[in-house]
Simulated scan of single mutants.
Amino acid sequence: MSLSSDSLRSADSAAEPDCSPRTITPTSPRLSAGREQFEFDLNLRHAGMRRVCLRVEWTGDLSLPALWLAGGISANRHVCANSVDGAPGWWQDAMGPQRALNPQHFCLLACDWLGADGQLDLPIDSADQADAIAYVLERLGIVRLHAFVGASYGGMVGQQFAIRHRLRLERLVSLSAAHRATPFASAFRALQRQVVTLGQTQCADAVGLSLARQLAMLSYRSADEFAERFDQPAEVRAGRVHCAAEDYLQHCGQRYVSQWSATAFLRLSESIDLHAVVPSQIRVPSHFLAVQGDWLAPAEWIAACAAEVSAPCTVERIESRFGHDAFLKDIDRVDALLHRALQTLSSEIAA
């Protein structure tokens, strides 16, 4: 596969985005952090050719080995504080001089997902996200990623990237993501989407979205964590029974509503359930992380996926009271995995 625009060809369509290389030349000298917005036509897997926008941020010099970082559907392009935006990012604790994700050693790139702005109200596939990322790399002049590090939905997109744009990738690191959604997890998300849709029909978008997020939080965390944090008796408040976790869940829902739209949630939730790859088509060295007790991405499913990869592959299982959100909360253990996954290049840099 060529590194020209042919490398961005959709695996299931003859159409492709206009991917002329080097259309945008990064400023010189290159910035230690930066943001860029890219608008382009992309042949979406389930909706045909559409005009899309991908917003990207990077931390670290663009000349350094590049890592693409991708989280769940609510993650965004701001992974850590930098000279462009000093606020903490969604993976702030995973960054730093002693961490595997060190912006002094790597250029760390991330994006706002296609559809995250609520403007793309149509089916979005994980393959579409991978093709959009490949387009952006072409525009930035980055020929090859040292690694795609994806967690949850980001791991799904990373799998698609490894299959569809293999020559652009040295290795895949996939955390808490299997080759497809389990029937039980899909059913749970379908109920969340019905809650959001019910809110829309009742002119109560915020209420529906908040409740859906609260349900989602139950799937991201574990029963053990809730037992540790909220093991207090229910109480009566203003004539109603109130359980100990309700305030926490309501806070999560309200915070989510302040940042996201119902359309964005619906379309990206759907995208998780649309994800499906053939693991044997992954032909780059890969590292998988599975969390015991994570029923959104069961360890058994991840192990089965890893077993079919057509390249050297490692799968690690951990126990974590944070369940699916271990990649966000169990930072030291995740960092140890990332160090092992990236150790070849890290040792070269140290030498």
Rank of each mutant, 00 (worst) to 15 (best):
Ile331Met: 02
Val173Ala: 00
Ala204His: 14
Gly158Tyr: 10
Cys19Val: 13
Cys19Lys: 04
Arg189Val: 10
Gln281Leu: 14
Thr263Cys: 10
Gly71Asp: 04
Ala14Leu: 13
Asp330Val: 10
Arg321Leu: 14
His165Tyr: 03
Val241Glu: 05
Gln159Val: 07
Arg267Met: 12
Val149His: 01
Phe288His: 04
Ser74Met: 09
Cys203Ala: 15
Val52Trp: 06
Ser219His: 09
Glu235Pro: 04
Pro103Val: 06
Arg317Val: 01
Gly323Ala: 05
Ala147Ile: 12
His146Ile: 00
Phe40Gln: 08
Leu249Gly: 05
Val291His: 00
Glu225Cys: 06
Asp41Leu: 14
Ala177Glu: 00
Ser186Phe: 12
Glu225Tyr: 10
Ala264Lys: 03
Leu31Ile: 01
Gln104His: 14
Thr314Cys: 09
Lys329Asn: 10
Asp41Ser: 11
Gly150Ser: 05
Gln232Ser: 14
Asn82Asp: 11
Asp325Thr: 01
Ala181Phe: 06
Asp121Thr: 13
Ala303Glu: 14
Ser126Tyr: 01
Arg139Cys: 14
Ala306Tyr: 00
Cys107Met: 13
Asp112Ala: 13
Ala70Phe: 07
Leu120Thr: 04
Arg240Thr: 01
Tyr256Asp: 06
Gly158Ser: 08
Ser210Pro: 11
Arg255Ser: 13
Ala116Thr: 11
Ser286Phe: 00
Glu170Ser: 07
Ser63Leu: 10
Ala290Thr: 02
Thr201Cys: 14
Arg189Phe: 08
Val157Glu: 00
Ser174Glu: 00
Pro279Ile: 03
Trp260Asn: 13
Glu16Cys: 09
Gly71Ile: 13
Pro65Leu: 11
Arg321Val: 15
Arg55Pro: 08
Glu316Met: 03
His324Lys: 11
Val195His: 07
Glu39Phe: 07
Asn102Cys: 15
Ala206Glu: 15
Gln214Cys: 06
Ala14Met: 09
Asn43Gln: 08
Gly118Asn: 12
His78Ile: 06
Cys203Arg: 15
Arg229Phe: 08
His179Asn: 02
Leu328Cys: 03
Asn82Gly: 07
Trp301Ser: 14
Val236Ile: 11
Leu3Glu: 05
Gly208Pro: 12
Arg168Asn: 04
Asp93Thr: 02
Asp6Val: 03
Val196Ser: 11
Ala70Met: 12
Gln192Leu: 05
Ser286Ile: 00
Ala134Tyr: 01
Arg340Leu: 04
Gly89Gln: 03
Arg166Thr: 12
Pro298Gln: 10
Thr182Gly: 05
Ala206Gln: 15
Asp332Arg: 04
Asp128Phe: 09
Gly86Thr: 04
Ala110Arg: 07
Val149Asn: 00
Pro123Cys: 09
Thr197Phe: 07
Gly155Asp: 01
Val173Phe: 00
Phe38Thr: 02
Arg22Ser: 11
Ser347Pro: 02
Gln129Trp: 09
Pro65Asp: 09
Cys305Asn: 06
Asp12Ile: 08
Ser83Met: 03
Gly34Lys: 06
Gln202Arg: 15
Leu167Gln: 12
Ala244Glu: 05
Glu319Met: 09
Ile73Thr: 13
His46Ser: 14
Phe265Gln: 02
Trp90Asp: 01
Cys203Asp: 15
Cys305Pro: 06
Glu39Trp: 07
Asp125Pro: 07
Ala14Glu: 11
His165Pro: 03
Ala304Tyr: 02
Thr314Met: 10
Ile318Asn: 01
